[in-house]
């Protein structure tokens, strides 16, 4: 049987990779992909907890479902924003998008 800690550790590693990607890469699309990886890691945790801590109800899985829903919405809007920025300013590097700057 799979120990719970395996699931958790592999989720933590996936999250770490996603985090690294989101921080280190400058391409907006790639950052979005990295964020999806992090959300997947969260889902892994939720499903793991659901399986081990409360085997008789599926609350964790339902939560994971909601996370997937929100992730889909986020991807749609995020990519639309990126498209818009690329069209208007002809850059997709977040390095070049610094309107928040002082």
């Amino acid at each position: 049987m799979i120990p719970l800690s395996w699931v958790l550790v592999s989720a933590a590693l996936l999250f770490g990779l996603g985090l690294y990607g989101a921080l280190a890469r400058t391409n907006a699309v790639r950052i979005l992909i990295a964020i999806e990886l992090m959300l997947n890691a969260v889902n892994l945790n939720l499903v793991g907890f659901s399986r081990y801590l409360s085997p008789h109800d599926v609350t964790g899985q339902v939560f994971a479902l909601f996370v997937i829903t929100v992730a889909a919405a986020e991807a749609a809007v995020g990519l639309a924003i990126i498209l818009m920025i690329v069209r208007q300013r002809d850059v997709s590097d977040v390095d070049r998008i610094n309107l928040l700057k002082w």
Partner: peptide, 10 residues
Amino acid sequence: QTGFVQTYIL
């Protein structure tokens, strides 16, 4: 305060 969201997340 670079304006780069990544820096903030970091």
